[in-house]
């Protein structure tokens, strides 16, 4: 029992930090620009594929550096020639623009890299079990993932709150005209923020690509879970996103390790619903089976009772 609890905690933290890694760019763009970027998962996918392509030519490590730069540049272009023109039509138009962009990017990736999964490998340097907890191995690559994730959190947090750049960026969101009058190039700030957000997504892609499956469906399969992280954490709150990621990671991992159902819970009552009724379906479903939908339940409850999220300070 202790073994399962310990291992589940560790797995939950690892998964939670992976979620944070994926969501950090999304929350950055959202907090700074107010744009809910539906194409975020597409940038994540693009990062994985570009990283894979570079890894084939020059190895994993150059990919880790170059892919985020390339994807970040692509993100800046998207902002400059796409999003900026849509901005005047409001947030809904911006959101819909990224919605369409996700379609296009998925198809483009399919044209270039095909529809089948590609063989993206964990670098040999990190391809060994780092430690063994009870009898379960933990690969070094997962610890590397954890380290990068934390580094990104610390780096972003420090940059936004402790540096002049961060203050200007934050002010540009709330008072764009004032910041512009002070002589800062506001459009350039927005462009850079979007580029950094896309680049962060690409880092997540490069790192998650070898650990998961690098395929053109990876964006769609990631689904809306990242929105759950960002919204539950509180729109625009980086710390909130970290807490929410860990919460969701642990919630799902512990739910999966439980086989309990209502039937088990109330076994003493002797109640047993008729087979082939809705009641029976509900009675028999185990916690593990509903684990992956728990985040969405959390999302709905959170928004109903605390719409600012865990640590956010505004609703939208």
């Amino acid at each position: 029992m202790l073994e399962l609890v310990l291992i589940s905690t560790l797995n939950g933290v690892l998964y939670g930090l992976l979620l944070f890694l994926m969501a950090s760019g999304l929350t950055l763009i959202f907090s700074m620009m107010g744009v809910l970027n539906f194409a975020h998962a597409s940038f994540y996918m693009l990062g994985a594929f570009v990283g894979y392509q570079i890894s084939k030519w020059a190895g994993f490590w150059p990919g880790l550096i170059l892919a985020p730069l390339i994807v970040g540049a692509a993100g800046m272009l998207v902002e400059r020639f796409g999003l900026r023109n849509v901005h005047k039509n409001g947030h809904v138009a911006e959101l819909l623009f990224t919605f369409g962009l996700a379609f296009v990017m998925e198809e483009l990736v399919q044209i270039v890299w095909g529809k089948a999964p590609v063989d993206y490998r964990v670098p040999a340097l990190l391809d060994f079990p780092a430690f063994t907890l009870f009898t379960t191995n933990y690969p070094a690559y997962k610890l590397f993932m954890l380290a990068i994730s934390l580094a990104i959190f610390v780096g972003l947090f420090a940059m936004l709150t402790r540096t002049r750049i961060g203050l200007i960026v934050q002010a540009a969101l709330t008072h764009p005209n004032m910041v512009a009058h002070l002589g800062h190039n506001v459009p350039l700030i927005f462009m850079s923020v979007f580029g950094v957000g896309a680049g962060l997504a690409a880092i997540a892609g490069v790192i998650a690509g070898p650990a998961l499956v690098t395929q053109s469906t990876m964006a769609a399969l990631l689904g809306p879970i990242l929105f759950v992280v960002v919204v539950v954490g509180g729109l625009g709150s980086l710390s909130g996103a970290l807490v929410a990621s860990l919460l969701i990671g642990l919630l799902q991992t512990f739910a999966i390790s439980s086989n309990a159902s209502m039937a088990d819970l109330f076994a003493f009552s002797g109640f047993s619903p008729q087979p082939n009724t809705i009641m029976n379906d509900l009675w028999r479903v185990s916690v593990a089976q509903i684990a992956p939908i728990l985040p969405y339940l959390l999302l709905v409850l959170m928004l109903m009772f605390r719409p600012t999220g865990l640590m956010g300070n505004r609703e939208s």
Partner: peptide, 24 residues
Amino acid sequence: GTTFSMISLGLAELVGSSSLILRT
């Protein structure tokens, strides 16, 4: 606003998933 949109997204996921649980 966005909060409404996100609730609709969450509800859609919940109902979609429950369709696989409430098989009857």
